[in-house]
């Protein structure tokens, strides 16, 4: 199908974007790579009165390395981030997660921030952001604010970004030497919608005790989410058989998977447990991202 008519603006600086957003906020949508938004518009499931493209704002095209974070601007394409030297070195989990997004032609155009702002419950970047304790850097007419990823996703296609705001950048934690991480996913097609996915990050002390655990899952609710019970079960002890079994049991109880055309809830619950088991064993063997 063809999209419904809309007006179009493509300012070439951030001030222009914010001005247009302020003027049309409720009825407008930001267009970044369009790989999630345009399909919805073509199907007329979404009919914004106006699209404001950020594609001309060169200032949003950056990957910055801060002391303990990697900051990715709103125009950075998924493929660009996936191939970026700094991202690969300092945040392999993100590069790993991005390789699962759509096909090459989608990743060439879709942006990291767009996927986060869109809040697709089956998207990979939200899970990676949660596992990496990302800071979501939001900008609006009243200035900038930072929201932790754990408070950013409210539900399917719903985030804390207000109508006159946009996601300017995402700042993920840099991977430290005492960390291991991986991203695992199961889908019915290699690049189709995920049935279930897992972004896993563990930090160990010298004795092998887990000092920090991040277990973020997709297909486990109406948005990507962290599984608190599994994280608690893993923290403060060695990553042994008992810890793995306990974490998997907690995850299977805590997840609340959706049923849809890709998989039903029971199947997802099972697969999420399998993924966590697999991921934890991989990290226990030191075979990480």
């Amino acid at each position: 199908m063809k999209p419904a008519p809309f007006a179009f603006a493509q300012p070439d600086d951030l001030a222009g974007l914010l001005l247009a957003l302020g003027e049309h906020g409720e009825d407008a949508r930001i267009l970044a790579g369009g790989q999630s938004l345009v399909p919805l518009m073509n199907l007329r499931m979404v009919q914004p009165a106006m699209l404001i493209s950020l594609n001309r704002v060169d200032a949003l095209d950056f990957v910055d390395v801060e002391d303990d974070r990697i900051v990715i601007g709103a125009r950075v394409r998924q493929a660009q981030a996936e191939e970026d030297e700094a991202v690969r070195r300092h945040c392999p989990l993100l590069a790993d997660a991005l390789s699962f997004v759509g096909g090459q032609s989608n990743r060439n155009r879709g942006t990291v921030c767009g996927s986060l702002a869109h809040g697709d419950p089956l998207g990979e970047p939200p899970a990676a952001a949660l596992a990496l304790d990302a800071e979501m850097r939001i900008v609006g007419p009243h200035g900038r604010r930072t929201v932790p990823a754990s408070q950013f996703f409210l539900g399917a296609l719903e985030t804390v970004i207000a109508a006159d705001e946009m996601l300017e950048a995402v700042a993920v934690e840099r991977t430290r030497g005492d960390e291991r991480s991986c991203f695992l996913e199961v889908g019915n097609r290699a690049h189709g919608f995920a049935v279930a996915g897992l972004a896993l990050r563990l930090r160990f002390d010298a004795a092998g005790t887990v000092t920090l655990a991040r277990v973020a899952m997709i297909g486990a609710g109406d948005t990507a989410r962290r599984i608190a019970g599994a994280e608690t079960a893993l923290t403060g002890r060695a990553l042994d058989e008992a810890a793995i079994a306990e974490a998997v049991a907690h995850a299977r109880t805590e997840v609340d998977p959706p049923s849809d055309v890709h998989a039903d809830a029971g199947h997802r619950r099972h697969v999420l447990g399998v993924l966590l088991d697999r991921g934890l064993r991989r990290l226990a063997e030191g075979d990480d991202a």
């Binding site: 790989q35 345009v38 090459q104 032609s105 989608n106």
Partner: peptide, 15 residues
Amino acid sequence: LDGRSARSCLHFAVA
């Protein structure tokens, strides 16, 4: 599109 593959049904020409 600028040397990389892209789906032309997912782009508005004006953009």
